[in-house]
């Protein structure tokens, strides 16, 4: 077979770079485990996590009614998403181990801009079997 023509090769590389692999990483609260997950623009963070079986519940199916899809962002990534709505803030009030940069995964639509960011899962969703005992929300 003759080698591909130079312009075709050019074309190939072009098409490959037009659909770059986007990825986001979910890390455990202490950073001991992390799961990189590929995503396509338009998916919510919860969908991406559930596809890869990350330890996140999403009990209400992404309806902003349960706060079990709680994730914690890095300071610098927090601004990359639109401001949370009042509804989301109301649900976040109920999330355990809430921090200033907490968000609900089901309310975060991912775009190309979010490629490579890393989010943390709050303490209680981590397997406590191997880790230290984490106090449950008895308050």
């Amino acid at each position: 077979m003759p080698p591909p023509l130079p312009f075709l090769r050019r074309f190939n590389t072009l098409s490959a770079s037009s659909a770059p692999k986007l990825r986001i990483t979910f890390a455990s609260y202490d950073g001991s485990e992390s799961t990189p997950c590929p995503f396509t623009a338009g998916q919510t963070m919860l969908d991406v996590a559930l596809e890869k079986d990350v330890d996140i519940e999403g009990a209400c199916g992404g309806q902003c009614a349960c706060s079990t899809c709680h994730v914690i962002m890095k300071e610098e990534d927090y601004g990359k998403f639109p401001e949370p709505t009042e509804d989301e803030l109301d649900m976040l009030d109920l999330a355990m181990h809430r921090q200033d940069t907490s968000r609900l995964g089901c309310q975060l639509k991912l775009t190309e801009e979010h490629d490579g960011i890393e989010v943390k899962l709050p303490a209680e969703t981590i397997s406590q079997l191997d880790g230290p005992h984490v106090p449950t929300g008895k308050e």
Binding site: E124, L129, T136, G137
Partner: peptide, 18 residues
């Protein structure tokens, strides 16, 4: 507590059982 509060709680019990 809400329904979600049962999650860490159930995890604790499950872990103790295991």
């Amino acid at each position: 507590g809400v329904i979600a509060s049962n999650i860490p709680d159930a995890m604790e019990t499950a872990n103790t059982i295991l």
